[in-house]
């Protein structure tokens, strides 16, 4: 009995790694630009479909396909911010919310037109089926462990980028005071675009792992957005390592909830989020 619960707990923690992958890009973009890309989850799902096409039609290995997609994702995010979102940024957050909301609906229905409503999945081959035995009857999937490691590495890499590089300092400067940045010749327009580009690289990585971990369909985006959002708020706005913690809290809540009933899996996640929001609105690891 104990091993069952330990198993669920472990599964939940590893699921938290996937959720942290969903959240880091959202956290970065929200921290720097002070708005939330409502289409974040839909872009993850859209990238899953891009990977699906690359792996099925071109026969590429999923890892290779993901690596090919990452630079394209950066350019896409850069361009999206530079040429669309930048036009409505600044004067009123409402407009950015509405534009990304519009994008979200366009992506969902575009995917529905193009691929139909059937759930899809990318096969990870042996990676998916291999397990790691931890003794005492507890086994975890190798792929789940790799996903968690990837999440830790991604958070560490973003942390280094933001706090140990020149471009990171510039991004943090724009996040601190965008008008002051413009006054001294730091181009906030370009830095916003770079931040969004980086956010989209994390979307590409998240999609790479999600497309093998679980089924996806055109309507999967909003769920991913809500997960990413809950993780970001629980972790503490703008806190990268907090996102990892928030992901684990949500993953464990869902995993334990799922023990009772499949509907409780999602509900338990939302309820834990609301409890954290009620008791600690600044999040578990507030940055600012």
């Amino acid at each position: 009995m104990a091993s069952l619960w330990i198993n669920q707990l472990l599964q939940g923690i590893l699921l938290g790694g996937l959720y942290a992958l969903f959240a880091t890009g959202l956290s970065l973009a929200a921290g720097v630009m002070r708005f939330i890309n409502i289409a974040h989850g839909d872009f993850i799902v859209l990238t899953c479909y891009v990977l699906l096409v690359l792996t099925t039609t071109l026969g590429l290995n999923p890892v290779v396909a993901t690596l090919i997609v990452l630079p394209a994702a950066f350019l896409f995010g850069f361009g999206l911010q530079r040429f669309l979102l930048q036009r409505v940024v600044g004067e009123n957050v409402l407009l950015v919310i509405l534009v990304t909301f519009g994008l979200s609906i366009i992506i969902e229905n575009g995917l529905l037109e193009g691929f139909g409503a059937d759930p899809q999945k990318i096969s990870g081959g042996w990676l998916e089926t291999a397990t790691v035995a931890l003794g005492a009857g507890v086994n975890v999937g190798l792929f789940q462990v790799l996903t968690f490691i990837a999440a830790v590495l991604l958070v560490a890499a973003l942390d280094l980028l933001l706090y140990r590089t020149g471009i990171g300092a510039k991004i943090r400067a724009v996040s601190d005071d965008v008008a002051a940045a413009d006054l001294i010749g730091l181009s906030s327009v370009r830095l916003y675009a770079i931040a969004m580009g980086i956010s989209f690289v994390t979307i590409g990585i998240a999609a790479g792992f999600m497309s093998i971990w679980t089924n996806f369909d055109p309507a999967s985006g909003p769920t991913r957005l809500l997960i990413a959002f809950e993780v970001v708020v629980m972790g503490g706005l703008g806190s990268l390592w907090g996102s990892l913690a928030g992901g684990i809290v949500l993953g464990v809540a869902q995993s334990i909830g799922g023990q009772f009933d499949i509907a409780w899996q999602t509900m338990a996640g939302h309820i834990v989020f609301l409890i954290v929001l009620a008791l600690r609105p600044q999040g578990l690891f507030p940055k600012y």
Binding site: A30, R34, V93, I97, V233, A263, H270, L277, A278
Partner: peptide, 29 residues
Amino acid sequence: MLLVFRLRTAYLAIGTWVIAELLMLAAGK
């Protein structure tokens, strides 16, 4: 309101969505 008013603008928007999801799931029970 007591919950989502702790959040600002875009965060508040998605906060209301989370509550709606939860209520829908609860209705199914």
